[in-house]
């Protein structure tokens, strides 16, 4: 899909993002031996983690011979470039990162933060998983999800339209609706 298959030295990057939140459970999970092995078994070569406000530091791995290199950073003004160059995205359930990824048509695993107080975010991820736009996991089940997933089975998401909302507002305020 993104041309990562050609060439011997082709890289396949997994990008992990937690947005502006603190989600150590996710960072810890992707840093675990189990998940890293599963990722390299699936043919991924690089793991890049955007760890946000979390305090858990993943272990950096670099080098030509490593099956999976690991790198991390805290924040970036825009994650668009990382999303574009990634072959798989593992994200927290924030709707910002979810829709930014879906619009790029990239395979996405959403991991729900079970420590949040009012977790209406999980509703969105569950619904989108049911409609087969993404895969849905909890930190404990992430390795299983990676093992079972087939990115080809995902259905592309068609974006919504803000016009009806604006028309409704104009109508309410007594302005012409078009």
């Amino acid at each position: 899909m993104d041309g990562a298959e050609n060439g011997e030295h082709s890289r396949k990057m997994v990008f992990v993002t937690v947005g502006t939140t603190c989600f150590d459970a996710l960072v810890k999970t992707v840093d675990s031996q189990q998940v890293r092995e599963e990722l390299s078994r699936k043919g991924y070569t690089d793991l890049l983690i955007q760890m946000g406000r979390g305090s858990y530091m993943p272990s950096k791995v670099s080098g030509e011979d490593e099956p999976l290199t690991v790198d991390y950073f805290t924040f970036s003004p825009s994650i668009a470039d990382y999303l574009k160059s990634a072959s798989l995205i593992i994200s927290h359930a924030g709707s910002g990162s979810i829709f930014e990824t879906l619009r790029l048509g990239k395979p996405l695993i959403v991991v729900v933060n079970e420590d949040l107080m009012d977790n209406h975010q999980s509703e969105l991820a569950e619904e989108l998983a049911e409609r087969k736009h993404l895969f849905y996991a909890r930190p404990q089940t992430l390795h299983q999800t990676i093992q079972d997933m087939s990115p080809e089975s995902l259905i592309p998401y068609s974006p919504g339209n803000p016009m009806p909302v604006v028309r409704l507002m104009n109508k309410f305020l007594g302005f012409p609706t078009d």
């Binding site: 924030g94 709707s95 910002g96 990162s97 829709f99 930014e100 919504g160 909302v165």
Partner: peptide, 13 residues
């Protein structure tokens, strides 16, 4: 995050 993205999609039109 997502709230801003949704709001700006309104502001855009």
């Amino acid at each position: 995050g997502g709230h801003t993205a949704e709001m700006l999609s309104i502001m855009n039109v």
